[in-house]
Design a protein around this nucleic acid. Structure first.
Length: 303
DNA sequence: TACGAAGATATGACCTCG
DNA sequence: CCGAGGTCATATCTTCGT
């Protein structure tokens, strides 16, 4: 026994056996037939339409209802949804003239999708993946809330990268004790050095505030080299940068294990990393919205 | 070239939900 | 009850080693 496809291919009847067995069982003993059709038994012999039974307009299988504006089976519904959500682009190997039936629907995705469109399935009725994701998350949150009353992070926070979204206490739970201790030592070193630096920066700002071209002037003028008043602004900026560099030097010097290195290695490490560290620190102190750099108590605008 | 194993991907029947 | 998306067992395809 064999089924001849629309391409004239002979299709082995064994492909259809799983479904056939199910149909037989259904006919012989409707009460004890399996509750479900065999899953994945996708190669089925074309079923004759029972009187009054509606057929899929794409492949002729038994329709399960209107999906995306057209009468289709579950297979074509799922295929259309997947194709749209994935923005799939298919290629036809047979000259784009495939006659889509229950066999050919699996053989040519391109013509199947074409036919879906032709019979009126509408891509705009497929809910975008992003919207589905948000709905899914909202549902999960709702379930979680009803279960233990605890509130999950808002969708906006869950969208953030994990390293930003996680608070430090949550992260610490996964750390080894020695790692936690190392982090706390580095943090306290940085904080102590920051106190000294802030005092130095504050005094620099106070001193320069009495100067003709103090911090207020710096804020007012653009960050350009040509005007002479800016030279004092640059002088102040340079002094602040030196303070930052000293701050970095102080932190690095006090890092656990750093003192155990030989003088030459310490010097190389300091020299090689200082520029990158200063760049990173500057990036942290730059306010994108205000387009200005915060150093000490001062604000440097870039226009 | 043929074959089989393993992994990746597609399918579709059934489910839940609004 | 209808029609969305979700789930997951199964089919099919692809890759790789022999």
């Amino acid at each position: 026994l064999k089924y001849i496809s629309s391409l004239g291919e002979e299709v082995k009847w064994s492909h259809y056996l799983a479904q056939e067995r199910y149909q037989e069982q259904l006919v012989q003993n409707p009460t004890q037939a399996p509750a479900r059709k065999p899953r994945g038994s996708k190669c089925r012999a074309p079923t004759l339409a029972l009187p009054g039974e509606e057929l899929c307009l794409v492949c002729g299988d038994k329709a399960s209802g209107y999906h995306y504006n057209a009468l289709t089976c579950e297979g074509c519904k799922g295929f259309f949804r997947r194709s749209i959500t994935r923005r799939a682009v298919y290629y036809c190997k047979f000259g784009q003239t495939c006659d889509i039936d229950m066999y050919m629907r699996r053989k040519c995705q391109h013509c199947r999708l074409e036919k879906c469109m032709r019979i009126g399935m509408r891509a705009e009725l497929v809910i975008p993946e992003e919207q589905c994701r948000m709905k899914r998350e909202a549902k999960l949150r709702q379930r979680s809330n009803t279960r233990d009353g605890a509130e999950l992070p808002s969708p906006s926070s869950s969208d953030l990268p994990s390293q930003v979204a996680c608070d430090s206490t949550a992260v610490e739970h996964d750390l080894l004790p020695e790692t936690s201790e190392l982090i706390s030592r580095i943090t306290s070193t940085s904080q102590q050095a920051a106190l000294i630096r802030d005092e130095a920066m504050a005094s620099l700002s106070v001193n320069s505030a009495t100067h003709e071209h103090g911090p207020i002037f710096v804020q007012k003028y653009s960050f350009k080299m040509q005007s002479s008043p800016c030279s004092s602004a640059f002088q102040q900026l340079a002094e602040l940068t030196i303070l930052e560099a000293q701050h970095v030097h102080e932190i690095v010097r006090q890092l656990p294990g750093f003192s155990r290195l030989c003088e030459e290695d310490r010097r190389i490490l300091q020299k090689a990393s200082k520029t990158e560290i200063l760049m990173l620190r500057s990036a942290r102190k730059y306010d994108v919205a205000e387009r200005c750099l915060y150093l000490g108590h001062d604000r440097y605008s870039f226009r």
